[in-house]
Every structure is written in C-alpha cells, then in structure tokens.
Design a protein around this nucleic acid. Structure first.
Length: 280
DNA sequence: CTGTAATCCTGCGAGC
DNA sequence: TGCTCGCAGGATTACA
C-alpha cells in the first residue's frame, strides 16, 4: 500500500518523536510478521537511543546506538507516534513507549509488513542495495535511457520493479505514466528518447506532489502522526476507471499489466503513435 | 530474460 | 439482510 510518498511522510513525521530519544518498554502482539517477530523484541529494544530515521525506497531505517531496525509497511502497515491514551486498534503488533506519554505503534492488518533488527548498518545497507535501484529523484538521463534500453518489458512492469527504480508502486506508476503521456504497455526498449525523458521527469514531479499532500489514503494508510493523506483527491488516473481524463475527457481505461490494475487515458497515452498517413 | 500465478493476510464493496 | 467473490497501496518465489 504505502509507496515512496507515504513512507517518506511516515519518516518525516516520526523523526521528531524518535531522533535523540530513548526507546522505553515494549509490548508485542501475538502474531508474527514477515521476516520474523518474537517476544525477544521486548528485551532487544528498550533502552536504545535513536540516532536517525531515514527512508530508502519503501523501507524505513531506524538507526539506534545498538544497531538499526529495518521496517516495511507492506500493504496495510501503519507506523505512528501517538498519545498513549489513544485507543489501541486491532492488529497492533508492536507498541514502544516513548517520552512524554507518546507511544510508537506498528499496526498491520494484513501482516505483509516487517520490523527487523540488524546488527549493524553495513548489513542493512547491503540488504537494501541488493534489492533497490536508484531513487526516482536521482535518475540521470543517460543511465536511465540505458537502463530502459536493456529491458524489454512493459514500462509499467519496469516501474514496479524495485531494482529498476526504488519506491514506485501501483498508484504512482500509473500517475507518472499519465503525466509523461506514455502507454503503460509500451516496451521499455521501444520508448522514444522523448518518452524516456518525460517519464524520468514525471517521476519526481508526481512523487513530490504526493509528498506535499502527505501521501494517499485509500484505505489504511496514515502518516507518522496518525493522520490521513490527501493525495487520493488529486489522482489523475488511478482508481478513476470510466471517469473523464482530466486532460481530454476520454474515459479512463483499466487493464491488467504485470499482474496489477493499470489505469490510463487511451487517448493521451496512445498505444501506438499515429504515424501512418491518412489513418486515424 | 519475461510473464504469470501463487503465496503471505484481513477487510471491504459489489453483486446475487 | 446475508452470503460469496474478487480485489486491494508489496515482495518473493516457483514455474512456463
């Protein structure tokens, strides 16, 4: 569920509650999460001092004086710092006491998320770099073009591949392709230089737009402060099947691509260029 | 190298 | 109203 803008929002909102603070008592729920989860959390975490909270792709890294924690929100994860008096909702798997009556809470109904302790930051970095391509904000024209040329699969599938670009998920893949006026099913090695460049520029633009709105709350997502985002109100194509394209009014289409629902404007993101004379 | 499907889970809306 | 079905923001693996 949470993609780069949502994870970035969580990181930004958790940071003031965590950095420089000590983790207090820990309560662990009965269910295990991805990548392991056990009662030993209660002994591992308390007393640690948080040094930094950062994001890489859709991962959250909490650096402490006794090793980092790596957190992924999966599809339905919520990671919040809220007053302890706020009622605990079902599916809360971890509660950490912080200073001044604030609790750090990890909640995840579908349990696709994970909270994993690592011994040192080098191991975490190696883990991440093995799985993640460049951040969408750092794409350089030439390497980007070459990366696209090396692959021959639908550009939508390419965008969802975390080793190609980190942090893009189903929502922002569709939104970026719309912004770039690129057909989601077009093979990456067949993108024109202009299309590749439009897409490269559309990614940070769309993602920053979403970060400014504190992410998209469709169902479960809330930021680190527990508040919903607003980006879902600004979707151009995602989840707007049958509704008019904001640019040309053509009904938004939905197809299945890379196993995921894919939304696009059949006119603005034409499957083929109209190149043959006299054809329409 | 690609694509597809299944897997891990719960919850919700659509449709009957 | 109540039930079943399909689908949902992700990552990983098996298999064709």
């Amino acid at each position: 569920m949470p993609e780069l803008p949502e994870v970035e929002t969580v990181v930004r909102e958790l940071r003031p509650h965590l950095v420089g603070r000590r983790l207090g008592a820990v309560t662990v729920g009965p269910h295990s999460l991805r990548r392991g989860w056990s009662e030993e959390w209660a002994t591992l975490l308390p007393g640690r001092r948080v040094k930094a909270v950062r994001r890489r792709g859709k991962w959250i890294i909490i650096e402490t004086d006794r090793g980092p924690l790596l957190v992924h929100l999966g599809m339905s994860g919520q990671f919040v710092a809220v007053p302890a008096e706020r009622p605990l909702r079902p599916h809360t798997h971890l509660v950490v006491e912080l200073a001044r009556g604030i609790q750090l809470r990890f909640r995840d109904p579908r349990r696709f998320g994970s909270v994993t302790p690592f011994s040192d930051i080098d191991t975490v970095n190696a883990f991440l770099e093995e799985r993640l391509g460049p951040e969408p904000f750092d794409l350089k024209p030439k390497p980007w073009r070459e990366s696209l040329a090396k692959s021959r699969r639908p550009v939508k599938a390419f965008l969802l591949d975390q080793t190609a670009v980190a942090g893009v998920g189903n929502i922002y893949a569709d939104e970026a392709l719309f912004a770039a006026k690129v057909y989601p099913g077009k093979l990456t090695n067949e993108l024109t230089p202009a299309e590749a460049e439009r897409l490269r520029k559309a990614l940070p633009k769309v993602l920053n737009h979403a970060i400014e709105r504190r992410g998209s709350s469709i169902r479960d997502y809330v930021g680190g402060g527990g508040r919903r985002g607003k980006m879902q109100k600004a979707f151009q194509v995602y989840g707007r099947t049958g509704k008019p394209c904001p640019r040309c009014g053509t009904p938004i289409a939905r197809i299945r691509l890379a196993g995921r629902s894919t939304h696009f404007c059949p006119k603005c993101q034409a499957a083929r260029r109209v190149s043959v004379r006299g054809q329409r």
